[in-house]
Each structure stands twice: as C-alpha cells, then as structure tokens.
Design a protein around this nucleic acid. Structure first.
Lengths: 197, 197
DNA sequence: ACAGTTAGTAAACAGATGCTGACAATAAAA
DNA sequence: TTTTATTGTCAGCATCTGTTTACTAACTGT
C-alpha cells in the first residue's frame, strides 16, 4: 500500500480542536517533566501539529503554561462543585488516593511546577489557598481559624508530596500502592490532622 | 580608587576549594530552581569561577548534579549516624519542622529534582528507600513489614510535600510557620501513621 | 466559481546552552 | 633557576530553543 493510504487523511481544520490538542499535550509534558525541561517542539510533536501554532494560539510558551494552569484550576473547581469535599476523613482520603493518572493528584503535581512567571505563580497560589480553605472548612471549623488552616495546608502538602513520590520516584511500595492500600493510612493522616479539636 | 584596588586579590589557586565552591553553588541552584532551569554559567558565576572548570572537575553538568546528590546523601547519612532518628513522634516531627534552609528538608527537595539521568535516579531512589526503612524501623515494627513501610513512606512523602510548598509556593500560613507552629500538627501526623498497631 | 479569510506549514533567526581546545598564569619539582 | 605539572581563562564550536515571517492549503460566504 502506498504512503497516501497509510497516512492519516489530512486532518480536518479546526482551530478549537487543535488548540485543545496542544493544551492536552502540554498538560502531560509540563506535569511529567516540568516547565524548563519541556520544549515547545516536544509539545507540538506530541500534539501532531506545527510548532508555530503554539505562538499563534497561546502567544508564547509561558502563555501555554498559564493556559494549562487555569485549565487545571478550572477543572478542579468544577469537580469541587459537583462533588463537594467529603465531610469524613474517609471520603477525603479516597479522593486523594485515586489512581495517579486521573483526578486531583495529577493537577496538584502540575501546581508545583514553576515557570518563574509571575502570573503563573499567582494562579497557583490562588488555587492552593482556596483549596486549603475548603479543606479547613470541611472539618466544620469556623472560617478564619488559622490553626486549622495550617493543618489543612499540611494535609494539602502531604497529598502533593505523595503525588510526586508516586509518579516520579518509583519508590516501592508507595509508587504502585492501590487505592485500597493507600486509603487506610491516608484516613489516619487526615483524621489526625483535621479532627475537630 | 582604581579597579586594581577594588578587585579581590587573585584568589590563591586551590583545586579542592574551587571544586567545593562549585558544588555549593550547584547545590543551591539545583535545589531552588531544579536541574533544567539551572545553567552551568549560573553556577560558575555564583561560585565566582570559570565555566570550563565544571567540565574539568565534574566532567559535565550531569556529573555535577550527581556529585550534588551523593554529597547530599552522604550528609544525610552522616547526620543520621550522629543523631539516630528519634523514637518518639515528637522527636521526628521536630526534625522535619526545622527551618527550611538547614537540615533534612532542603536535602529532600534536592532529592526530588530530576536530571533525567539514570545514575542520578538510582542514587535518589536508594536514599528514599533506606530512609523510609529507617523510619519504619524507628517505630519498632519488625523489618519486612510492608504495611508499616508504606506508612513510613507516606510520612516521607508528606515531609517532602511540606518542604516543597514551604519553599516554593509562598502559601500562608504554611510558608512562614515557625518550628513551634509546625511541630504539633506534624506530631499528630506522625503519631497517627506510625503508631504501633 | 471566486475572493477573502482562516488554519496550518516550513524555514530561518537570534540568543542561549553545554562543552572543548588552545593558551596563560601559577605552583611545585628538579 | 629551570623545568614540569597543575590550575585557571578565553574564545569559539555545535546544537538547541523560543519565536517570527513568509508562504501554502483549506474553508466560508457571496
């Protein structure tokens, strides 16, 4: 058969779709390898489109990174509205223990990536702050309770640390622990930190 | 006054000292900015020596990074022999809560930095594994107890997450929490995860 | 069918980056 | 003092990286 036949038929032109392809590829790369270690050509190749389109649709590499952050933040927020944070340590633990590729943890890892850009830092910080507050309030503690907020942020930090070590270090048994393995210790952790006191 | 006078007198030649200057500068940069975001010229400038000396003393940028890792690992190990991990949650918590610039936490952040190099990954993994085991044994659990090892690694992950968020995100009140602020929640965390069960 | 607009590509540029080889300055050895 | 080895500098290389510009191909409305 000729190359003509094997080659994918000339992809239909669709700016929105192409933009999304770039965004998805970038999300994966930035999350896995970090900002500096990812090149725009890597992303474009993954998405199967031309490098120049990054500049067209996102202005610059940093613009693309910011778009990734806001996209990630939006999804977390949307997710949060649908399924408000469980009230019980068990429910929270289960949300954190989800498979690495999906859900919250992946987003948290991206949140830790830094481009050195100020706008990106603001976005990141904004989400971390609001998420910590949500976590603190989920315990039933009154808003403005700094002691509890600190504890909630420690939970947040623990979750990100777990996400990082699980995805990047290959440390066993943590790296390939299943959801069932992970929930009991996490439940204990959350219970100890956030129990009303 | 002339430039001649202001300039530091031609530093006495000393290969060992120069090597150490480079190593120290690299440790700081790699820890703070990560591998990819750090250039050899950054490091050389910080150390106040010529770029070419990196290649001479460490073979390559990756060689320098590996040297940083082993140096960091050695110091952690040495530190561990001097002051064996405290048996009580309180003692462990205190070790983690230390100021960000000194002690264990800084090293843990470096441990998370990746160069993509295989040798570096081995070094990193080796330390994480042994540290997790030490932590598990400190609880008095028998060696080979996988449940407890997982819990110890969760503590380790939590500590790294805290270190990262404290140094890199500026998330308040976590970022500027004092040792006293941090010890109580950490004690609870460690107690919940590692208490003999 | 045609003109105008939009989507996508290719090539190249300017600057950065890791690294090297030839050389100069200093210290050590003879 | 002369010779030799070590330490450090300089300039440049090849490659990579983000971005831009000029161009071609496809879609849209008329």
């Amino acid at each position: 058969m000729t190359a003509r036949e094997t080659a994918t038929p000339p992809r239909r032109r669709d700016a929105a779709k192409t933009r999304q392809l770039l965004l998805d590829a970038a999300l994966q790369r930035f999350t896995r390898d970090g900002y500096a270690a990812t090149t725009v050509r890597d992303i474009a190749d993954d998405a199967g489109v031309n490098v120049a389109l990054i500049s067209r649709y996102f202005k610059s590499k940093e613009g693309l990174f910011e778009a990734c952050l806001t996209s990630s933040v939006d999804e977390i927020r949307r997710n949060a509205e649908d399924t408000p944070l469980g009230r019980t340590p068990e429910a929270i633990a289960r949300q954190i223990a989800r498979p690495r590729t999906e859900g919250l943890l992946n987003h948290l890892v991206l949140l830790l990536r830094s481009s050195g850009d100020e706008g990106a830092d603001r976005i990141r910080l904004g989400l971390l702050r609001s998420y910590g507050e949500r976590l603190a309030e989920a315990t039933g503690s009154p808003p403005g309770d700094d002691r509890m907020l600190l504890r909630a942020q420690v939970v947040l930090a623990a979750a990100t640390g777990i996400a990082l070590l699980r995805t990047k270090s290959g440390l066993e048994p943590l790296a390939s622990a299943t959801e069932e393995d992970l929930v009991p210790p996490l439940r204990d952790l959350i219970d100890a930190l956030l129990r009303d006191r």
